[in-house]
Structures are given as structure tokens and as C-alpha cells.
Design a protein around this nucleic acid. Structure first.
Lengths: 251, 251
DNA sequence: TAGCAGAGTGAGCGCCGTTCGCTAACAGTG
DNA sequence: CACTGTTAGCGAACGGCGCTCACTCTGCTA
């Protein structure tokens, strides 16, 4: 939004900005060291030689601080995903999608507390229900849209560049068609509803699998979900007509 | 385990059992009224005219109480699922599976706080990591096995009674084959590894979808995940060779 | 009737989020 | 320079939390 125009930052404003970013940095440190539940205002303040009430000069509440940390984490995650996407070789959308998906799982498993904050059930309260419709300008919400967009864009590119089998609009149940139409209207580019459906289904499998793995809901069956993830990735590739581009993971 | 043999309950023991169940009942009431975070020992005690320390006569800690509530909820959910399974008409495993899946989603969406306790990221701590292997006799763990078993049994019955397409063992990546073999060894009946794979993949789609819906991770696209759930159910039916048994939801 | 086990209490510890009133240090103006 | 208004940060305090401890009371049993 109004990023660049506000150039002349006063001495005070610069100090303030520094403090804000130090608080968020410290909050993340506390998050990593002590988990989501240990992320307390007092702990953050203590860690940086302040007292808790002082933080209220910078954030309205613990909730507010957490929201800002969440938004930053979404941005960081998006940066990572975009970076691996742009570095993928060969630079076809199919290979890029699989690379990005792997990087997502990688980030999730190596950033357990952060992932819990972004995707756990504790995040329920963070994206308020009132913002269901409308612009939804809450910080974490816009940041999470960028994250989801990385995947959505790649699937869209695969479809536009080479296509993949998609249900006809009139094969979709009317109720689902309505839902998908409403969603589609919110997006910058219009795609066939069948594409939206396929994307959602893939998304559920990828994202659902990673969430289940990280939150321990797969331990009843697997103690390492990696191979299952690869199998799903392969299946998704087949669905999107890019099975031939599947390569075993680099690591 | 030792349920029936301990018949002669003294007057005191009966009183104690009553108190235990009253505490759990009250805890659930507090859970529903005030959410997962509001489920505090003091709140439970207050609600039933006691003080918090008194609860320590019955439960070792808040954690312990929560575990017992979780186990009870798993049992209740399993009861519901088994009931609708046994009432499904016609009583084919395909119809039963879809009915049970719908009932699961129904329970999830109408019991938001309870679902959060069972399946949210807060449940991470509840099933301890040490119990990864071995018997895993922690209360919530055995209760959750019964829950998962309802689905697993139905998929197994579909396979055994009429079969469905399944990858050959040597089509599976070696790493995945190892994982599935280990899991299979823990189960009462041995099934082809391909069946385990298909079941897991279905499970991820069903369970992942419901979790994402309830925890708000699908709101970016859908404000009612019902139609998408039905579409997935249909797709799963096709995968398991029971597409013909799909019927639109009763409601 | 004496004694004992168990239920339940109140006080208290250290933690939490949050509010309030205060003291400084700072920035800008005459 | 002095004066004024703004801001950062602090200590105290409120109510709530999980949990421990020492204590009382009650009901059972020997």
C-alpha cells in the first residue's frame, strides 16, 4: 500500500521501527524456544530487557503481536517458495509445482512451532469470521493469500500451457458449482470451474497431508510421512498431466 | 481391560466414580461454553461448586483431566459412527462408508470445540511422542484407534468383498513399502500393501478436508465446504469401486 | 470409641494479559 | 534558552491460571 511515499522518517520513527522489528524478532525466538503456548508478552519483554506493559506502545495486545508475527512468517514462507520455484530446473510449471510442494513440506517439518502458529487450530481465532466475505484486509489474511497464490498460479499455468483433464461445468453438482463460481469471481483471472475443483482437491491432499504429518495425526500409521508425501506428489502430477516431470527428491 | 470383574464397589467407590464422571461432564460443558482455552481447572471446579485443588483428588493435572475427556469424546464419536454404520440402508460396506464419513463431518461441524480438542494442533502434546512405537496404551491413543478402525474396517471389507484397483507391491517406492509393511504388522489382519496405500490416501482426503473446513483453512475458497465434501466422497467412492452406491446426502 | 483414609478447603507460589499513573527523555516552538 | 506537548518505558495492581501444601472435617472400620 503506502510503502515508498512515506520516505522522510524522523529519528523517532526510525527508532520505533527498529523496536517493532526487534519485538517481532524476539517473539519469534520465544516461539521457537518455548512453543506456541510459551509465546507470552512477558516472556518476550523479559528476553529483550523490557517489561510487558512497554510492549503495549507497539502492539495493541498479545493477539495483535501474534498476528504481525504470523504475517511475517507467511511472507518468509512465501519468499522461500518463490525462491525455489524460480530456481527449479527445468523451469516448467510441473517441476516448479513439485519443487514448491516439497519446499513447503520441508519448511513445515523444520519449523514446527512456526507452522503450528500459521496452520494449527490456534490460528482459528486469528482470521476472524467476520472477514469471511469482503476484502478481508486483516494482516495474516492478505499474507496467507500470497502463500496460497504460489500454488494456485502454478496449477493455473500448467492448465493454460498444456491443460489437464477437468470435469465439465455441468458435471459438477449445482451447489458446488455455486461455491466455485463465487470463489472464482474473487480471483484476478477467470478459469473454468473444473480447474478450480481440481486445484482444490489437490490442495486438500497436499496441505492436508502436511498438516496431518506435522500435527501427529498420521503417526498411527507412519513414523515418517516422507515416502507417502512423495507418492501423493506423484499421483498429483499424474492428475495434472505432468507425471513425466516427476523426479525423485533431490535430498 | 479389568472392567467387569471388579464388581463389589463400596459406597465410597461409587461416590468417587460419580464425582469423576461429574467432573468430566462439567469439563465438557466448560469446553463447549468457553472453548479449548477456556477449559480451566478452576472454571470446572467453580461450575460444580468446588475449588480447584479438590479436583486433584481425581486427576493428576489439567493435562490428565483433558486426556480423559478426550478419550470419552473419542468413544462418543465412535459410538455415533458405529450406530449410523449399523443403521445404514442398504447395509453394504460402500454405503456404510459414505454414511460414516458424512456422520464424521456432521459431528465435526456441530461439535466445534470438542473437535478442536481431539483433532486440533493442541492435541499434539496429548499423544506423547515416546509412544510412537510399542503398545501405546495412553488413554486417548487407544480411544482414537477405535475411531480410526471404523473407517479402516469398512475399507477392508470393501476390498475383501468386492475388491478395487490397488497398486502392486513392486510399484510402490521401497521407502513407502517399508513404512506400510511396518504399519501392516501392527494390524490384526494382513492386507496387501496396496490396500493400505489406497486407504491412507482416502483417509488423508476425507480427514484432511474435514479438519481444514473446521479450522477455517478452506475459507479462502469456500464458505460452505459441504458440496466439496460430497464431491470428494463421490470421488473416493469411484476409487473404491463403489461409485454406484453413492446417494445424495439424506438431509 | 479411637483411629485412619479420603474429600475438600484456603493460602500461597509463580506465571499470564492487561490497565493505570507516573517519570523521564525527547522534539518542536517562542 | 525556556516552554510545551508527545512518547518510551516502568512499577504496581487486578483478576485469572496451574499447582502445592497444610489443614479440617466426615464417614468408615477395627
Amino acid at each position: 500500500m503506502s510503502e515508498l511515499p512515506a520516505e522522510p522518517l524522523s529519528r523517532r520513527d526510525r527508532a520505533r521501527a527498529d523496536t517493532v522489528s526487534e519485538i517481532k524478532r524476539t517473539a519469534r525466538k520465544v516461539l521457537v524456544e518455548r512453543g506456541v503456548d510459551g509465546l507470552a508478552l512477558r516472556a518476550v519483554a523479559r528476553e529483550m530487557g523490557m517489561t510487558a506493559p512497554g510492549l503495549y506502545r507497539y502492539f495493541d495486545s498479545r493477539e495483535d503481536l501474534v498476528e504481525h508475527v504470523v504475517a511475517d512468517l507467511y511472507d518468509e514462507l512465501s519468499d522461500v517458495l518463490e525462491a525455489v520455484r524460480d530456481a527449479a530446473e527445468p523451469a516448467t510449471p510441473g517441476v516448479q509445482l513439485m519443487t514448491v510442494a516439497r519446499a513447503f513440506r520441508q519448511w513445515a517439518t523444520t519449523h514446527h512451532p512456526e507452522f503450528g502458529l500459521l496452520f494449527g487450530s490456534a490460528a482459528e481465532g486469528i482470521i476472524p469470521a467476520e472477514d469471511l466475505h469482503g476484502p478481508g484486509e486483516h494482516l495474516p489474511q492478505v499474507a496467507s493469500r500470497r502463500f496460497g497464490g504460489v500454488f494456485a498460479e502454478l496449477v493455473a499455468r500448467i492448465y493454460l500451457e498444456q491443460g489437464f483433464p477437468v470435469p465439465d461445468e455441468d458435471e459438477l453438482e449445482p451447489a458446488l458449482r455455486t461455491q466455485l463460481t463465487e470463489w472464482c469471481a474473487k480471483l484476478p483471472v477467470a478459469l473454468p470451474l473444473g480447474v478450480m475443483h481440481v486445484f482444490l482437491s489437490c490442495w486438500i491432499r497436499l496441505y492436508g497431508l502436511v498438516c496431518m504429518e506435522v500435527f501427529g495425526h498420521l503417526r498411527f500409521a507412519l513414523d515418517d510421512a516422507g515416502p507417502m508425501f512423495e507418492a501423493e506428489l506423484r499421483a498429483l502430477g499424474a492428475l495434472l498431466g505432468v507425471a513425466g516431470e516427476y523426479r525423485p527428491p533431490a535430498a
